[in-house]
């Protein structure tokens, strides 16, 4: 059982690690000071969650790796985050749309994980849910505000949605790891999270005067680790550089 559980925990931790890193790239250059603070706050929450998930993953694996070893010493093919979170920041609208789509999935996932048969997972989910509920409130408001703002902000948000929507489907794909999690009542079947996601997405997009793309085509390969985008390698080369260049050092 430890292998699928390790995979599952890496998926949770890599999602928050990669997205937290992306959001942290905004440091100091947000459109307005309040957004600088809010983006840093989101990144901080996600990095904190990463530490919890990946430390647990390391413990489950039992090979002496902790969260830092997993975050800083694995290569692209060992990462298990969905493709959505490794997409480039783009403009502020694209960053917010990516965050909103992820938050909406994330919240549903964490609600389900609070009832996990695995006590530590349930505890991490409970802590994370408080933070993610706030993230979702904020990104929902921002997507609506910018969608229903000026012509320019509307067009940019529609473009962001069109650009990112093909990465939504992967969050709800079920595979053998998920089946193993369901069998042990550790985690939900991601496919079961989709109806709630869709209903809320439609409400928000309607308030934002945005149109949901008609094609449900979904890129895949992130959470299975089979085929990440080219972007992830560049992110890791920056994120992991110090640890790789000075492997004997402690920081």
């Amino acid at each position: 059982m430890s292998e699928p559980l390790f995979e599952f925990l890496c998926r949770m931790g890599d999602n928050t690690l990669v997205l937290g890193h992306r959001v942290s790239e905004w440091c100091g250059v947000a459109p307005v000071l309040e957004e600088d603070i809010a983006l840093a706050n989101t990144a901080l929450d996600l990095i904190g969650q990463t530490t919890l998930w990946l430390n647990l993953a390391g413990a489950v694996e039992g090979k002496g790796r902790d969260a830092d070893a997993l975050a800083f010493r694995r290569d692209v093919w060992e990462f298990r985050n969905v493709l959505l979170v490794e997409q480039l920041n783009g403009d502020f609208g694209q960053t917010m749309m990516r965050q909103f789509l992820f938050d909406l999935w994330h919240k549903g996932m964490l609600i389900a994980l609070q009832g996990s048969s695995h006590d530590q997972i349930a505890a991490i989910a409970e802590k994370s849910l408080k933070e993610v509920t706030y993230h979702l409130e904020r990104t929902t408001d921002t997507v609506i505000g910018l969608g229903d703002g000026t012509d320019e902000s509307h067009n940019r948000m529609q473009k962001a949605l069109d650009r990112l929507y093909p990465f939504v489907g992967e969050m709800f794909v079920s595979d053998d790891v998920d089946a193993a999690m369901v069998a042990e009542s550790i985690a939900p079947d991601p496919a079961d999270l989709r109806p709630v996601f869709d209903a809320r997405l439609d409400e928000v997009l309607s308030d934002a005067t945005l149109v949901r793309p008609t094609s449900d085509f979904a890129h895949k390969g992130g959470k299975s680790g089979q085929r990440h985008s080219e972007h992830l390698g560049h992110m890791l080369s920056q994120m992991q550089w110090l640890q790789r260049a000075y492997p004997d050092a402690t920081w």
Partner: peptide
């Protein structure tokens, strides 16, 4: 901010993020 994306551990990254966030707060 120049080093947030290159911070060598998750803890150091979090501390640096929190610090830069504090600075934005001070500005405010």
């Amino acid at each position: 901010g120049n080093w947030i994306t290159r911070a060598p551990t998750l803890e150091r990254k979090a501390i640096l993020l929190a610090k830069v966030q504090d600075e934005a707060g001070h500005g405010l």
